[in-house]
Nucleic acid binder design. Sequence first.
DNA 1: CCGCAATCAAACTGTACAGTTTGGTTCCGA
DNA 2: TCGGAACCAAACTGTACAGTTTGATTGCGG
Lengths: 207, 207
Amino acid sequence: MQRQESARSSAKRAQIQQGATRVFLREGFAGATTDAIAKAAGVSKQTLYVYYRDKEQLMVDVLTSLLTELNRDQAALAGSRPVDSLPELRAALADLASNVLEAVCRTDYLALTRVIIADSPKVPAIGRLWAKTITGGVRSVVADQLEQARRVGVIQVDDVQVATRLFVGGVLTYVLPDGIVAAGGTVNPPSAEQIDELVDMFLRAIT
Amino acid sequence: MQRQESARSSAKRAQIQQGATRVFLREGFAGATTDAIAKAAGVSKQTLYVYYRDKEQLMVDVLTSLLTELNRDQAALAGSRPVDSLPELRAALADLASNVLEAVCRTDYLALTRVIIADSPKVPAIGRLWAKTITGGVRSVVADQLEQARRVGVIQVDDVQVATRLFVGGVLTYVLPDGIVAAGGTVNPPSAEQIDELVDMFLRAIT
DNA sequence: CCGCAATCAAACTGTACAGTTTGGTTCCGA
DNA sequence: TCGGAACCAAACTGTACAGTTTGATTGCGG
């Protein structure tokens, strides 16, 4: 039987998680020393090993938490309003795009992505979780929105999946490839005008 | 005065580079031990340090070579035919897309990307080189093609840059986010039909 | 107030690895 | 055939670090 964790000890665990998160995102797996993690968490190294078998399991826990949290945020976007006119769809897509871009531009997020990419060969489970929750998540939100618009005849499009890829790809390309290699530097998301232009162009393709 | 390198010694250097390339792409910077590199290159560890000051400089050299080589390949695509009709543009874009996707799907390339992303915080120069040559390179090829088509009136589009992003993003999204975290596994590029559909859809946006 | 459980700091152990040193071997030019 | 330059294998050094051990300290339930 799994032993129940007391309030006190689960608080400690959270404290460790928080500290470890900071260090892992800043330094990556290899660069993060257990001493640094313990210090960042305000916890003795020894305690750290009471809660986690080893460094790898700690990182898996940290990344899993971050991903599920991000996934929750996304789910919030997901319940996006049904549309029944073109201007409404336009607004919905622009909104979606700017939300996603803002989220992605947060330094944390870029750091997380970098860490996952760097270490996914070592911890494939995390890579798969990432693919499912994040990229897959955004795609499914957009696809749902488009599918709904198609059903009510706002747009005409043969293959919603292809349309989704075109849109999501176009949006992400503003930030991803360059932002991810730009050391610690923040990336600035594109302006509202740029987003609008992209959305307009995309809509022309599917109306 | 810089001493001239003999034919013999530059052959050794190339040999070291080749071995190091294999190991770095497979293991990343941290994971690649100098012993493994020496063995893969068929060279004594000692010789390795005759040619390179340290591991970091060796990796910079390896990545720089790979990037400039890739850049050359791309330049070959760049001199793409001018078009003066829509079907020609369609064919040119589909061609471009399938070439790029094929290149990107090669395991080497994905591994290279992963390594660069992982280690760019440590070696920012490489990150910048990557951004300039690869992502920037593809974008500029596409932008040139579109600009030319616009000049001769084949397409109408306000902002060629935005259109370029939409297209390149749409194309890359087939492979990048998932392929890069999928451990060593190869990714299969999308079928010709999928590419065609994407191109058609894109063209509808800009005609 | 007692005693146990959680925590702590700090020192310790073992291993992995970058980079060096040593002492030979091969090969090439004179 | 000699001498030196490039190369080799293997052993060595120093450091960084994951994980452990030790022995003291705190704080809470009873």
